[in-house]
Design a protein around this nucleic acid. Structure first.
Lengths: 110, 110
DNA sequence: TTTGCATATACGCCTATCCGAATAAGGTTC
DNA sequence: GAACCTTATTCGGATAGGCGTATATGCAAA
């Protein structure tokens, strides 16, 4: 049953997390930060994207508490706010992989 | 390291799943279907949304293999394609809950 | 085959979001 | 405090995605 409180929580889940995950650049940022914290310019170098683009995406991730920022001297270091975020993404990836395998098996059927 | 194949996979993860999850109506549909399969009109009743709206969202979920459709007499029954989809969403929900608790604790600090 | 129910699609409009380019803001170093 | 480095923001234009309404399609029962 979709109780009002569940509806409310799912609405917030969308507003906070899911809509933030709906951009491939932001997914790449999260995976890059899953390895280790990085500064803005490091991220811009690694993703080969303009620095303003990176900053804009980091702002969205920061506002929704997916990443945290700490100043380190002249630069700002970003890190994942919760390691489990990539766990959730990895779970989706394995679902996706299994689906592809299943579809490939269907095609291979005589 | 963001290897080309990882970048490729994440790009597809976004295109297939994450962008499909970036709508609160679709999240509600997935949670409704997590309980039990339902027909289009049942879903429209439960979410109190127009039938074309439900059909449009179901099409998106179906195209990305998040749900599967089977005809049952005069109506069409939809079901989750993989139960783990809601597991991933539930993981995100618990991250969200923990974050809220953490922030509440910060505010409560003297 | 005609009628009717359930679902799917088309169209037009509106809003949200992304990007590139330019510029501002915040710290650090000298 | 002036110059510099890093990061953040703003602006305009382009695009994608959502919704309501109307309508089409697909089965099924008679």
């Amino acid at each position: 049953m979709l109780t009002p409180s569940l509806v409310q929580e799912i609405t917030q889940l969308h507003a906070d997390f899911c809509s933030a995950l709906a951009d491939s650049t932001r997914l790449l940022l999260l995976y890059a930060l899953a390895e280790r914290p990085r500064t803005v310019s490091e991220l811009a170098d690694e993703l080969r994207l303009p620095q303003p683009t990176i900053s804009r995406h980091l702002k969205i991730l920061r506002e929704r508490s997916l990443v945290v920022a700490t100043r380190q001297g002249m630069s700002v270091e970003y890190a994942l706010a919760d390691e489990r975020i990539v766990d959730a993404l990895d779970l989706l990836r394995s679902i996706m992989r299994d689906r592809i395998q299943y579809q490939a098996r269907l095609v291979a059927q005589p």
